[in-house]
Design a protein around this nucleic acid. Sequence first.
DNA 1: CAACTTTCGCCGGGCACTCGACAAAAGTGG
DNA 2: CCACTTTTGTCGAGTGCCCGGCGAAAGTTG
Lengths: 385, 385
Amino acid sequence: MRTSDVFDLLRDGRPRTRAQLAESTGLARSTIAARVDVLMRLGLVAPYGDARSTGGRPPSLFALNPSVRVVAGVDVGATHAVAVLTDLSGEVLAESRAGLDIASGPVEVLGWVTATVGELLVRAGRPASDLAAIGIGLPGPVEHSTGRPINPPIMPGWDRYDVPGHVQRTYPVPVLIDNDVNIMALGEQQTHLRDVDDLVFIKVATGIGAGIISNGMLQRGAQGTAGDLGHVRVLRGAGVICRCGNEGCLEAVAAGPALAARLREAGAEASSTQDVVDLVRGGDLAALQEIRQAGRDIGEVVATMVNLINPSVVVIGGRLADAGEHLLAGIREVVYRRSLPLATESLRVVASRAGVEAGVRGAASMAITHVLSPEAIEAASANVG
Amino acid sequence: MRTSDVFDLLRDGRPRTRAQLAESTGLARSTIAARVDVLMRLGLVAPYGDARSTGGRPPSLFALNPSVRVVAGVDVGATHAVAVLTDLSGEVLAESRAGLDIASGPVEVLGWVTATVGELLVRAGRPASDLAAIGIGLPGPVEHSTGRPINPPIMPGWDRYDVPGHVQRTYPVPVLIDNDVNIMALGEQQTHLRDVDDLVFIKVATGIGAGIISNGMLQRGAQGTAGDLGHVRVLRGAGVICRCGNEGCLEAVAAGPALAARLREAGAEASSTQDVVDLVRGGDLAALQEIRQAGRDIGEVVATMVNLINPSVVVIGGRLADAGEHLLAGIREVVYRRSLPLATESLRVVASRAGVEAGVRGAASMAITHVLSPEAIEAASANVG
DNA sequence: CAACTTTCGCCGGGCACTCGACAAAAGTGG
DNA sequence: CCACTTTTGTCGAGTGCCCGGCGAAAGTTG
């Protein structure tokens, strides 16, 4: 029974007495006292006032102290980036956004990242030594174990760049990198689906991608490219050539640029994904029909995913999902018709709740998970013990 | 550093000296000696002769002793069943097959299972006390954690039946249940792809299903129905109604019965999946074209799987795969055209090598993994001390 | 055959960990 | 205000585990 096991019980944030911890672990009270002492000296656990007395001395409560340390979460998109500083419970302490072209290369982008993290630390009134880890999401395939982007299509100059190494020159802390869609999946799970172990997050924007959490773990696949549903063929794609060179890709039919193009053909003014969203919100009938149909097209692929992966929740996010319930309705329509009854009987298809925050939240969550992992706790407590 | 950590080093079957184990673990030689002693008293490890001397007393070698105990692997199909007894390395000691209708219900089928396991033990000259675990594959969705079938379409009377409980009345050992396709995936991994952590196994026979191993672990999904690709819609399925009630399912187009039906329409004599295989083997041109096209249809869905799951190997098995390379060729044709370059650059699409043995091998492998798990080793060594 | 080398099995010491006890602290209830 | 209850922190004892040393065993080399 290790120190991290005691800490695991406190990770949910609920306060507990020593006696309760002893009860849960089966260890003696004195042993628990020693463990709690170590965790308190590490600052990870803090007193939480006293519980009500039952006739004798009132027991003191302890709980996870989320504010001992902070982590940074960064979500780098194609044209803009968001960074947050959170405490260990994921509570956002400071936030910063900027227009930022990923194509300007790793040196410039990561320069912004380190500068912004520094600024966030100052704004939150925290010394750099309080920073425990940094999580970063990038818009392309990433080899998570090394933190290097692999052949990213829209990230010139980033191929196999040592992102953690670069950032660690400024902040010598663990730096974790993942795909932007993966961290959005983590973000949704962390914000409102903590007990969900099998979740698929679908991002619908300029491109279409998915983050897959199966068995409580992110599924990255052999090369870290899992979840690419943008280039799956769909029925309505017959004759449509995608930028990848193939015919009938979902992305060429149902992503933002495709919708905008079709609306332009119909005479509407729509040059960007955002324009499509605005038209839908404005009640434009053609736009509404288009987005509903896009939902059906995406639903076709999601139905396949449901059959193949059998998640318990599918979360729909990305900028096109901000246009109200229409996209979701189209997806639901097809999924519940096409997927197997057994797989859909307890399936929920829901809209993103974390919204634009999903990415940074997930990036921070990834960092927190690393910092509070049993291994990290053991290593830290060995230095204090 | 636990006893199971020392055992883990020996699990690959390669013999080692105490000094090598001490080197690998960082423990003192005397500690290693104690650990090895425990493992030897458990019978899990046995002397393996002496290594060559380097000028002094030759060190003695130790290796996993696969023959201390045995496990049973059972693959129950719709109309027949196979059972094997293997040692802990997966080596088959005895085998038995029988025609057996799954629809005759759990009591009859499991009666055959227990009787056959008993017979195999006798044939291998092993007492029942040598049996360490039983792995069973069933042709339908199974809740692995409880071993109960869940709404299985072709298994009347089996719904939520307590399979492990029934078997344990005869053999009081761990009984592990899984989907037949999942155990075939395990079987392929165990027989010739041991270092592959991301593998998809596709079974093409009367139905079409997939077993997904991702990150080294079987992915079962929220309800244990993951890998159902038979009811994914394909292009060529337009207008074809599947037995599930939907239109355009892969299974309604590319599985054995569909091929047989189309060949019959063309005037050939083909009533079963086996007949189709025979025609192809006989060089029948129409059958050859049909199976190649079936490969393309399946390839369409496999291409989607490759994009979504990003495996490093796709294995094609099932009875239709026995008809030579034609099915595989059709699948490869579409997969390498439709999947993303990054996902296919190191992807291998190969034929099953374990063949009809895959299921039982996988079932045995599942049992072995359980028996040799660190938890099981720790528990066992605590009793020997 | 003798000297040397390397491994083996055993044993005692030391270290760290955990437990239970005990007295002090901090409340409650009459 | 006093007796009683319950928790807290400390401390010594017991225990189990791991290490290193030692003599014996089993080879090699000259």
